[in-house]
């Protein structure tokens, strides 16, 4: 204590542990950040299922369609009143897939429908996709965690 009082130089804090810790926190958040949420519509409450498991491998070509209870569909942040307005987007996706030597059946259509949606509206959307020769569907659900309804 005595020697510090006598010194005229300002005391320097050792910043190394703080910087270490901060970099570790940044690394943690960088690993967990999920950019795929762009496809997800905020206001859609997915139905729950205990068998929900993420797909083992990501599809090469995928279209995520968010379906509201009134039949409105949102795709890539654009909202459409009904599924039949998506025809140009289906065609473009099929063209992209064909350029890579893939068939329309290789394009996975992920349907994120709100839990209150009449099932008939989900089937209508599937029918619109089928008109464009898209036949590979995935119904997206949320994992039922123990203790939830």
């Amino acid at each position: 204590m005595k020697s510090k009082r006598q010194s005229s130089e300002p005391e320097k804090a050792d910043l190394t542990p703080m910087i270490d810790m901060t970099f570790q926190l940044i690394a943690f958040f960088m690993i967990l950040i999920n950019f795929s949420e762009v496809d997800r519509s905020e206001d859609i409450e997915l139905p729950l299922s205990e068998l929900a498991k993420p797909p083992m491998e990501a599809a090469q070509h995928e279209m995520v369609l968010n379906l509201q209870p009134d039949g409105a569909v949102s795709y890539a942040t654009t909202r459409f009143a009904s599924g039949d307005q998506l025809k140009p987007y289906f065609e473009r996706k099929i063209r992209d897939a064909r350029r890579e030597g893939l068939e329309p059946a290789d394009i996975r259509i992920v349907i994120r429908a709100h839990e209150d949606t009449p099932t008939g509206k989900v089937q209508e959307l599937m029918a619109e996709c089928e008109k464009a020769s898209l036949s590979n569907f995935a119904l997206r659900v949320k994992e039922r965690v123990l203790g939830t309804r």
Binding site: A52, P55, F137, K142, E143
Partner: peptide, 22 residues
Amino acid sequence: LAFFIMTFRITALEGDFNILMP
């Protein structure tokens, strides 16, 4: 760090049921 903390969201796991048509 502030950016990552603010954009961080805990979301439930989502999974798929595969349906083949026709």
